[in-house]
């Protein structure tokens, strides 16, 4: 389903607008998702690396 299907009256060019280095909305959204999973992975690695509880 596209945004325009859901919302009559939308300007069709909005989803294809240029967004600087990201190029398109889809690329920007993908960057956010990759960033999120990278954050989770980083925090998990830190959790493991900084666990100095007694064995």
């Amino acid at each position: 389903m596209t945004t325009d299907d859901r919302a009559p009256g939308a300007r069709p060019e909005e989803d294809d607008e240029s967004l600087g280095v990201f190029g398109s909305w889809r690329a920007l959204y993908a960057a956010v998702l990759i960033y999120t999973f990278a954050l989770v992975a980083l925090l998990y690695l830190l959790t493991r690396a900084l666990d100095h509880s007694i064995t």
């Binding site: 925090l43 998990y44 830190l46 959790t47 900084l50 666990d51 100095h52 509880s53 007694i54």
Partner: peptide, 12 residues
Amino acid sequence: YIGGIQEMWSSI
């Protein structure tokens, strides 16, 4: 290291 003894840095 000190924070890690009580797992205070544990985020996940």
